[in-house]
């Protein structure tokens, strides 16, 4: 049975039996944006990049 309608879940079996969908892959690749476009979008939202160190794992702090 091939489910074609409705929004459903995504379980392990469905992931295993999934078949390659090139058309959808090309769509998502076409919607990609450049770093420059993303920066412009950030500026529109008044977001500025700032330096911030990664957090050490809690165990390393002990």
């Amino acid at each position: 049975m091939v489910a074609t309608t409705g929004i459903r879940g995504l379980n392990e079996e469905e992931l295993k039996s999934a078949k390659f969908n090139e058309a959808e892959l090309k769509r998502v690749e076409a919607w990609s944006v450049s770093a420059a476009e993303a920066q412009q979008f950030a500026a529109q939202g008044k977001l500025s990049a700032r330096p911030l160190e990664y957090l050490p794992a809690p165990a390393a702090q002990r």
């Binding site: 999934a18 078949k19 969908n21 959808e24 892959l25």
Partner: peptide, 12 residues
């Protein structure tokens, strides 16, 4: 390959 397969299970 993995992304194309995942999209085969759930489209965009």
């Amino acid at each position: 390959q993995i992304a194309g397969n995942l999209l085969g299970a759930s489209p965009l």
